[in-house]
Amino acid sequence: MMDMTAPICEDGLNSPEMVDFMKSPLKFDLYIMERGLVPCFYGVAHAVGSPPVVGLVTLGAYHYIHWNDGNPDNPAYTPWWIHPYSDHLSFWQRHYSSYVWLYSNLVLSNVVLPKHETIQKNYFAHPNVKVFITQGGLQSFNEATYYGVPLIGIPFMGDQHYNGEKFVAAETGYRLQFRHVTKDTVLKAIRTVLEDPRYRENMKKLSAVYREHQAQSMPKAIWWIEYVLRHKGAPHLRSGAMDLSWYQLLLLDVVAFVLAVAATTTLALYSLARYLTSLILNAKKHKTE
């Protein structure tokens, strides 16, 4: 995924439309941008008057986005969405997830709006749709969940592996690796999902939970955009974590202090024990003499 960022930045920032836009004398009250993949477009905000920025993420958010915004982000149970892990990680998965978390935050250093396509929604709503074969993208995952349709995922890239792991863990879908796709494996996957009632039952339960959220995305997005404009960037919502150094955010200074106190106390007790032992042995030696 990181190999994609440079071409996206170069093509986007060097396009004639973007060059003309940044040279334009127009200034704006608000800057809305996609934050999912590359950070290079933040600079465009300064070219249009440095207005407040509203970021939307149509995939899972990168670790460095959470870091920059001061959002809670623990790699022990929130792996990066490009990895095929669920929220229950093994030791080695947590080890790798922590490494990636540190790398993406230290080196690479919202409003999430789901997107729906009317044509695809019409298919999901049809009563004869019993299973949905998908690459595992977030929007397709959301739509299938809303309509209670079990999934067969064939992930290729990005968040698709992570989403596939999520619906496999929830027993709402079946995952196939593309390199293993044959007529027989696809038929096996379809029969498994159709003939095992757990998949539809679990998806119906998940759909009921999903439908509890009745707020519509568009009115909610408009309200928050207008809210940011009314309150001039809404600085009162800014997380205090954004003012902390990386070692303060990770509590490394506190850990270092506690370890230093513990080490000093241990050394003092050890020295005291040696001193008292020496006194006792000397006292015994003098008595013997």
Rank of each mutant, 00 (worst) to 15 (best):
M1E: 10
T5L: 09
I8S: 05
I8T: 11
C9Y: 01
D11W: 06
D11Y: 05
N14G: 08
S15P: 12
P25M: 01
L26N: 15
D29R: 03
L30A: 03
L30N: 06
E34G: 00
L37W: 07
V38F: 08
F41I: 07
F41A: 09
Y42M: 09
A45N: 08
G49S: 00
V53W: 04
V53L: 00
V54H: 02
T58S: 13
T58Y: 05
Y62V: 01
Y64W: 13
I65Q: 08
W67I: 01
N71E: 14
N71P: 03
P72A: 10
P72I: 14
D73L: 06
T78M: 14
P79D: 00
W81R: 04
W81E: 04
H83W: 04
Y85K: 05
D87P: 01
D87V: 03
L89W: 00
F91C: 00
W92E: 13
S98V: 00
S98C: 03
Y99R: 09
V100D: 14
L102Q: 10
Y103P: 01
L108W: 14
S109G: 15
V111H: 09
V112Y: 09
P114N: 12
P114Y: 07
H116T: 08
H116S: 06
T118W: 05
Q120I: 15
Q120L: 15
K121N: 14
F124G: 11
F124V: 04
A125E: 11
I133R: 10
Q135E: 04
L138G: 10
F141P: 02
A144R: 02
T145N: 01
Y146D: 11
Y147Q: 03
G148D: 13
P150C: 02
G153T: 09
P155Q: 01
F156W: 09
F156Y: 01
Y162E: 06
Y162C: 08
N163D: 07
G164E: 02
G164L: 00
K166M: 14
K166W: 02
F167A: 07
V168T: 13
A169F: 11
A170T: 04
E171M: 07
T172C: 15
Y174W: 15
R175S: 15
L176T: 08
Q177G: 04
Q177A: 02
F178W: 07
H180I: 05
T182A: 13
K183N: 12
R191L: 15
T192C: 02
T192I: 03
E195N: 12
E195C: 10
P197L: 13
M203A: 10
K204N: 14
L206S: 13
V209W: 09
V209P: 00
E212R: 15
H213T: 13
M218I: 15
A221C: 06
I225Y: 03
E226Y: 04
R230T: 08
R230M: 11
G233W: 02
P235V: 07
P235T: 11
R238M: 08
R238L: 06
G240W: 05
G240H: 14
M242D: 01
D243R: 03
L244Q: 12
W246S: 11
Y247P: 01
L250G: 06
L250F: 07
V254L: 09
V255G: 05
V261D: 04
T264D: 03
L267C: 01
A268E: 06
L269E: 15
L269S: 12
S271F: 14
A273W: 11
R274V: 12
R274Y: 08
R274H: 15
L281Q: 09
L281F: 09
A283F: 09
K285D: 10
T288I: 13
